[in-house]
Design a protein around this nucleic acid. Structure first.
Lengths: 180, 180
DNA sequence: ACCCGCATGTAAGCCGTTACATGATTTC
DNA sequence: GAAATCATGTAACGGCTTACATGCGGGT
C-alpha cells in the first residue's frame, strides 16, 4: 500500500501529472525511500481518483492530466503517517549474500566482501554529491527539506555499510593469520 | 530469485526439512537478511528438486522429508554469490514516511521522529542480546560465524538509524526556536 | 483422552516487473 | 525531417501474503 501514500505525499506539495510523478520517483524518492515505475503509477492514480483521494486538476496537451490531492486524500495520508508502522519485513539481498558466504572458498569470501565495501563507498560518495547540490536550495523545516533529511539517512547508512565491510574483512584476515 | 539461494545456502550446512528451514528463517535469517513463510518455502523446495539443485535425503514420520543440496545446487549457489548483484531497488517504508513528513503539522512531525528513534533503540538492544548469545558458541571463520557477521551489520545499522533520528529531531528543534 | 507442536500443502489475490503499444510536441 | 522527450496506457507473469486445509506424534 505504500505506493498510494507516496503518491498522495508528492501531490501534497502541488498538483502533478503521472509523468511528473514518475520523474520525481526517478530523481529523488527512489534513491532512499521508494521505487516505482510508470506502469504501476498510472493505474494507481486511477484507483486513487476512483476512491476520491485525488481529483483531476487540469488537462493539457498530449493527453496530459494533472491531479490534485483532495481533503479526503490528505486526511488519509496523515492518518497513515501517524499510524505506527508494522515491523518491517527484511529483504536485503546484500545481507543474504553475506549470511551465505560460508558456501564459498575463503579467498572468494574476501573478494565478495571487498566488492561490498567498494559499492558502499561509491554509493556514499554519490549521496555526498546529492546533498551538496540540495543544500544550496533548501532550509531546514521547509517542505523540500525532508528530502534532505532522507538523504542524510542515506549518507549515514552507507557509511555504516562501508565501516561494517571493513571490519568484516579485517576480522577475517586476522583470523586466517592466526590459523595459518 | 533470492529465496532459491537462501534455501540452497541453508542446505549447504546440512540437510533439512521444509519445517526446519522455516524455523531457521524465523529464528535468524529473517532478522537481517531475508524473510519467507512456509507457504512460499515448500513450493520452492519442490521447484529446486525438479531442477536437480536439491534432492530428497530422507523421509521420516508425519510425511517429514529432508532435502540435501546437490553438486549442481552448490555450483549454482556459488555462481550467484560471485556474481555482482544488481543495484538494489529501495523500498524502505520508514524512510518513505520521513520523506513525506512535511504533510504533517510540526508537532506531529516531531512525534513521528521520536517514535522512529525509540524503535531504532529497541531494535538495537535486541541485536545486542542476540550477538551476546551467539558469541559464546561461535569463532570467527567458522560457518556459523557468518550469521554473527550479519548480526554485527544489524547492530551498526540500527545504531545509524538511532543517531540519524536524534540528529533530525535536534535539527528540527533548533530550527523552530530560530523561527519563533 | 487431549493438546501442542510437528509437518506439509493449496488457492485467491495483491504488488510489482518486463515488455508491448501508441502517439503528440518540441528542438535542432 | 529526424530525434528526443513528453505522455499515457495495457498484458503476462513472477513473487509474496493471507487464508484455508489436513493430519500425525509425543507428552501429560
Amino acid at each position: 500500500m505504500s505506493l498510494r501514500y507516496a503518491l498522495l505525499g508528492l501531490l501534497t506539495d502541488h498538483p502533478a501529472s503521472g509523468y511528473e510523478l514518475t520523474k520525481h520517483f526517478e530523481n529523488s524518492l527512489q534513491r532512499w525511500a521508494w521505487h516505482a515505475r510508470h506502469s504501476q503509477i498510472y493505474p494507481e492514480l486511477g484507483k486513487l481518483a476512483t476512491d476520491g483521494l485525488i481529483e483531476t486538476y487540469d488537462e493539457g496537451a498530449r493527453g496530459r492530466r494533472t491531479y490534485a490531492i483532495t481533503d479526503a486524500g490528505l486526511a488519509e495520508l496523515r492518518e497513515w503517517l501517524l499510524d505506527p508502522p508494522a515491523k518491517p519485513l527484511v529483504r536485503n539481498e546484500g545481507m543474504l549474500r553475506m549470511f551465505l558466504l560460508s558456501a564459498l572458498e575463503p579467498a572468494d569470501r574476501r573478494e565478495v566482501l571487498v566488492r561490498y565495501e567498494k559499492e558502499a563507498i561509491a554509493a556514499g560518495e554519490e549521496v555526498e554529491r546529492a546533498i551538496k547540490l540540495g543544500e544550496e536550495d533548501v532550509q531546514p523545516g521547509q517542505d523540500l527539506w525532508f528530502g534532505q533529511l532522507a538523504a542524510e539517512y542515506g549518507r549515514r547508512s552507507f557509511a555504516a555499510q562501508r565501516d561494517w565491510a571493513r571490519w568484516a574483512i579485517d576480522t577475517l584476515d586476522v583470523d586466517s593469520d592466526v590459523n595459518s
